[in-house]
């Protein structure tokens, strides 16, 4: 491993192509940390946005007019405003209103850090799309199939768990995956509130080493590969979940 790392130092000396995140242990750690922060932020947002989607879709079927209105208002607001401004609104406007807690150094620090706010904001943003996706999936399950389960004595919960959800899930998978891929790309916005994700760490490295070109190309490739792997995996999953003889 070290031999390979050292080779990049030689590359820099010989050609001027400077990739410090490969030969320099400190920069390497920063890049690896950034990569895992991006992954962690994506996973947290993925979990909560799907949760918001499921709950929202359920609430949208509510018989209370105002519940439906509020869910619709939420969806429209988050779909039709820039996610970056949403992030600022959460982090600066709401974040400053929350109480502070005493930190390890005896100072005051906000109760929620930038990572938490990025996770909240992006989850709400992606969740607004997921609500629509889940709702349409549930609506695509024919009433007659549900009725057949009812006639067999299934309870409401059993029907939801054994029939409606598995069918709806298969139907929405492509749209859901597409949204999740977008979510991973959107995590770069967290850069704006200094969450140390990949873009932020890359920025730190190019500030220290003045190697914007190399870092930029590396970043583009890194996201291309990351998103490419994700898309490929999702496609395989979609194929595996396909019901034979249908669709």
């Amino acid at each position: 491993m070290d031999v390979i790392f050292e080779w990049f130092r030689v590359l820099y000396d010989e050609t001027g192509i400077n990739l410090p995140f490969l030969y320099d242990a400190y920069d390497r750690n920063r890049m690896v940390d950034g990569f895992f922060t991006t992954i962690r932020l994506s996973l947290v947002c993925l979990f909560f946005s799907v949760l918001i989607g499921v709950v929202g879709a359920w609430l949208q079927g509510s018989s209370f007019k105002w519940t439906r209105r509020i869910v619709n208002g939420y969806i429209q607001l988050f779909r039709n405003t820039p996610p970056l401004v949403q992030l600022y609104f959460f982090y600066f406007a709401i974040g400053t209103m929350l109480p502070t807690v005493e930190n390890d150094w005896g100072g005051q620090s906000p109760i929620l850090g930038s990572f938490a706010w990025a996770a909240i904001s992006l989850s709400f943003f992606a969740g607004a799309f997921n609500v629509e996706i889940f709702r349409s999936g549930i609506e695509a399950v024919p009433k007659s199939t549900v009725e057949a389960a009812e006639a067999l004595g299934f309870s409401r919960l059993q029907i939801y768990r054994d029939v409606t959800l598995p069918l709806a899930f298969r139907v929405v998978l492509p749209a859901l995956n597409n949204n999740l891929v977008n979510l991973v790309k959107t995590t770069t916005l967290a850069y704006a509130i200094a969450v140390p994700e990949m873009l932020y760490e890359a920025n730190q490295i190019w500030s220290d080493n003045v190697n914007v070109t190399e870092m930029m190309i590396f970043l583009l490739l890194a996201y291309f590969v990351l998103v490419g792997i994700l898309v490929g995996g999702m496609n395989r999953w979609e194929r595996a979940m396909r019901i034979p003889g249908f669709g």
């Binding site: 199939t145 009812e150 006639a151 067999l152 019901i243």
Partner: peptide, 20 residues
């Protein structure tokens, strides 16, 4: 309803099998 549906079976025009 469960008690009733144990006694009564039903077959529909459009089969309504569970496709998955």
């Amino acid at each position: 309803k469960l008690e009733l549906r144990k006694k009564v079976g039903m077959v529909f025009q459009q089969y309504n099998l569970f496709p998955h």
